[in-house]
Design a protein around this nucleic acid. Structure first.
Lengths: 219, 219
DNA sequence: ACACTCCTCCAAAGATCGCTAGAGTGTTGG
DNA sequence: CCAACACTCTAGCGATCTTTGGAGGAGTGT
């Protein structure tokens, strides 16, 4: 076999992983999977796409090495294979934010107006958790909380927030977190909490970043 | 504008960077650019593709934020924008090697049979460079050597190796390096050097990895 | 001004991808 | 064994991407 052919073959194989990241739908699925494993149907619902189509995209991701599947009963659970992949996807997103102004802009447009207050850094939240000087709320859907959450966090899905305001203190600061910097939940939560007189702040980034930094988790 | 639409828009923007990495040709161009900046024509020649097509691929890379261009006279020089991108591309390749067995296999098929001897690690080479106990040869094309090389390395392009064997010692070990783990030059060089009685070894990975670790360079 | 070089833009053909619907596979539970 | 369910596979259409050739613009040297 020709040298040029072998080289082409090598880059073709590498491109399998690149192609896996080359679709908005697949990136959305990866973001969901960064929160924990999920079935095809759950992913399809969460990403507002057909099951057949979702399955096809997941095959592309699987052939690209970015997800693995586990079959249990009639369900197939997909997930990120290991932390290297999870970390890589975070770096990908951060690089895109840094290099492409339109990404940053689209993120702001989607998440909504920036808070007047700065988000809490992970280190700061960790310190406040240790001193008991904070209430942390996980505003993601319950399945994602169940798959893993910040140690000591309370699960208050964004849908239930208004109904459960009484559970949250008004004298101690509340910090809300969700999936990551491009997730609307924690921003919405902070806005609503403030409207009801709580001292609310948003956590910098989301749960995957917390976990991958080796900070304490539960679940 | 609808929330769902804004989210779709965000992921569409992110996918621009993904799409940039979704083609074997573009990955090959990125590998070349990791060695230093180059004109469109030089890239086209090196990657064995037409100038028009190369230009089109470079536009995709530029819109994806993975390259920038600089115009000088009639030439346009493309390059990786910063070390974050260079580092990211290394991580991409390493992840692909780790997760996709076919990548690793295609790499072996292309580079040729593994040496009987282990490659030299960067730390080991650094130590031997400091003690003067080694001759380092850069077997990449001269332009790439000129754009940056390991401090103290000798430029001996692979094409000229046989003719310039006399310049290389037989009593001191010779370490050859090139573009990276999927580059054939250093493997070929080691094979030929050994046939002529030199104590030759290959450096682990290539110049970009050396530079990005902050090790001493010249150029 | 002129020819020349390098590169990008445009247009068209061919290949690939994305999505949908319907059939098929495998598992669970009655 | 059958029905129900979750998922994958196949086929087909339209949309997008890749590649090529040719025209056009920008810069250089005579």
């Amino acid at each position: 076999m020709d040298t040029r052919e072998l080289k082409e073959r090598l880059y073709e194989e590498l491109a399998r992983m690149g192609k896996a990241m080359a679709s908005s739908k697949r990136l959305e699925l990866l973001d969901l999977l960064a929160q924990g494993e999920r079935t095809v149907e759950a992913l399809a619902t969460a990403a507002a796409m057909g099951v057949t189509n979702t399955s096809a995209h997941l095959q592309v991701l699987r052939r690209g090495g970015l997800v693995t599947a586990r079959k249990q009963g009639t369900h197939v659970y997909y997930r990120l294979p290991d932390d290297d992949v999870a970390q890589f996807m975070l770096r990908f997103r951060n690089l895109a934010r840094a290099r492409l102004a339109d990404v940053e802009q689209a993120g702001r447009d989607y998440v909504g107006p920036a808070d007047h207050v700065e988000p809490v850094t992970r280190d700061e939240l960790l310190a406040r958790l240790r001193s008991g000087d904070v209430t942390v709320v996980d505003v993601r859907p319950p399945e994602e909380y169940a798959a893993g959450h910040i140690a000591g966090a309370l699960s208050v899905p964004i849908d239930e927030l208004e109904a459960r305001l009484a559970e949250l203190p008004t004298d101690v600061g509340v910090v809300a977190y969700c999936r990551g910097p491009f997730c609307v939940y924690s921003s919405q939560a902070v806005r609503r909490l403030r409207e009801h007189g709580h001292q609310a702040q948003r956590l910098q980034d989301g749960f995957p970043e917390w976990r991958l930094e080796g900070l304490p988790t539960g679940g």
